[in-house]
């Protein structure tokens, strides 16, 4: 499902974020990417969504070489991914509902179906009673759940989250993690980058550890 083959990424300032990374994630797996800050976790996730391009190597997602995609093909790829961004990227000029609606508008759903799907996604993350609220009035944990609702509303086969528990206290963080596990249980491939070792404590999932841009064994 996701395959990295000898992937390296060097930024224009000649900083090597990733060095010769090779791994495969099977369909339906749940995988954590850990490592110190600056180890290349975010870069790795961005490469999958074609937000960054690799300097060398091949990245196969759903049978497509992401490194070679252009224009509209990148857009189509991203519609099949659920992305939770490190900096959340919530739009504060519109309601919770409209934030979650955006991916469906982009995919061209008719308003009726879209409304149903948005409500279902908000229900899953427990924000249904806040659909008319402005995101600024939500707590940190609620904002993060809003991001997850937006990521899953398109029903993607792959869910990718960058530090989804970054600023949350332990109880909220556990909540969020349970949510990802429930998506994993219904067959979604889940990939989470985190530096939060505590979250991994009880995890039986596979862990990819990055150290200075290299995969630790």
């Amino acid at each position: 499902m996701i395959n990295f083959g000898n992937v390296s990424k060097r930024y224009p300032n000649s900083y090597d974020a990733l060095k010769n990374i090779t791994f495969t994630i099977e369909t339906g797996e749940m995988v954590f990417v850990t490592g110190h800050s600056g180890a290349g976790k975010s870069t790795l996730l961005k490469l999958i969504a074609a937000i960054e391009r690799p300097t060398s190597g091949s990245i196969i997602v759903n049978g497509q070489n992401v490194a070679a995609l252009k224009g509209a093909a990148i857009s189509i790829l991203r519609r099949n991914l659920g992305l939770v961004f490190q900096d959340q990227k919530i739009l504060f000029d519109r309601s919770v509902f409209d934030n979650v609606l955006l991916p469906l508008q982009i995919s061209g759903f008719d308003p009726k179906t879209a409304t149903g799907r948005v409500r279902a996604a908000l229900d899953k993350v427990g924000l249904l009673d806040k659909e008319k609220a402005r995101p600024i009035t939500l707590s940190g944990g609620e904002q993060q759940r809003l991001c997850i609702a937006r990521a899953v509303v398109n029903r993607p086969s792959i869910l990718i989250a960058d530090e989804p528990t970054g600023n949350l206290d332990t109880d909220y963080a556990r909540d969020i993690m349970d949510m990802f596990r429930s998506f994993h249980q219904v067959g979604v491939t889940v990939l989470i980058a985190t530096h939060d070792a505590e979250l991994l404590g009880g995890a039986q999932q596979r862990i990819l550890t990055l150290d200075h841009g290299k995969l630790a064994a």
Binding site: A49, R78, K89, D93, N154
Partner: peptide
């Protein structure tokens, strides 16, 4: 922001 987010979640240039 809206344009950036839209691009990131799969909006085409069109």
């Amino acid at each position: 922001d809206e344009i950036e987010v839209s691009k990131l979640i799969g909006a085409t240039n069109g």
